[in-house]
Structures are given as structure tokens and as C-alpha cells.
Amino acid sequence: MTSQTLNKKQLINTQIKLMNANLNHIAKFKTFTKTENLESIRKFIFKNSTKFGFNEYKAEELVLAVDEACTNLIKHAYKSDSQSSITIEIKSNKTNLIVNIIDNSPAFDPRYVKDPNMIEYRDEYRKGGLGIFIMKSLVDSIDYKTINNGEFKNILTLVKQLK
């Protein structure tokens, strides 16, 4: 990783920490890791995004970003094991909606997934990486951390600005 990349990541992390200092908790949703439950997740995000002030288009962008993140967890991290759960927390400040996706699967930091070469992806039978790329493209910043207070958790944070 270059020092420039590191500085950018440090700046984003600092910005997220500053945002976290003054957040309103809006809503929380917990569901089992079943693909059938993605529809409920989408509705939950859309409802709270529009309530926060996003127009339908911006809300749909956030819905898709969260959907890609959760689909990745269900299909790849949990390999469609439907007995585990994902918790989604929505918080806000005046200008940002913050979505925390919390789960117990093995650690995986999507920030370090290399963006796919779309020319190769398009022309060859490449798989994988497109969902994370779309997720990253539809939000303003992403953070990821793990915590272990007796129970291991991944927390993926997606931030979308109201602008």
C-alpha cells in the first residue's frame, strides 16, 4: 500500500470518527442470513433513507450498496448457511446517513478488494468483485473494523451524504 493510499484511508477514518461523535440512532434490523431476507433489508434501507431525506433515486443507490454487501455475506461468508444473522444499524447526523452492517463471519475487509478490470470482466468469463465495486461506487465512504468483546464481530460502515 502506498503512503498516499494510507493517508487517504487515515483521512477517511478520521472523518468517520468525527461523524460518529454526534450521531442519532435511527433504526436497527436483525435478520437471518437467507437470500429470501434481502427483500426485507432493501425495504428497511429504502424506508429509512427516504425518511432521512434522500430522494428515491439516492435511496435506491444506498439500497443497492447495502444489498450487495449483504448478498456477499450471505453467499460467500456464510455460504448460504441460514442459521446465522446480520444486524443492520442506521445512524445519522445532519448531513450523512450511516449504515453499519454487523455480522460474525470470518474477517473480510472489502476496502482491500481490488477493483475489477472492467474490460477484462466484460469480455472474458470473469467472476467476482463486481458487487463490491458497485457497493463502493454508490456510497461516499466505507469503513471496516472488527471487535471482539467475547464475541467476534465485523462492522462494515457505509456512509452516504445528503447533498
Binding site: E60, V63, L64, D67, E68, T71, Y121, R122, D123, E124, Y125, K127, L130, G131, F133, I134
Partner: peptide, 20 residues
């Protein structure tokens, strides 16, 4: 179709690759 995700895009790309 009002919305699409990466797997849906993958379907359209599949058609493109098959025919291109």
C-alpha cells in the same frame, strides 16, 4: 426493470460475451 444488481449485470454480460 427499475433496479439491477451485480448478478443481474452479470446476466446481461453473459449474453454480450456469448454473442460478441
Amino acid at each position: 426493470v427499475e433496479s439491477i444488481d451485480s448478478s443481474g449485470l452479470g446476466g446481461i454480460l453473459l449474453a454480450y460475451r456469448q454473442l460478441h
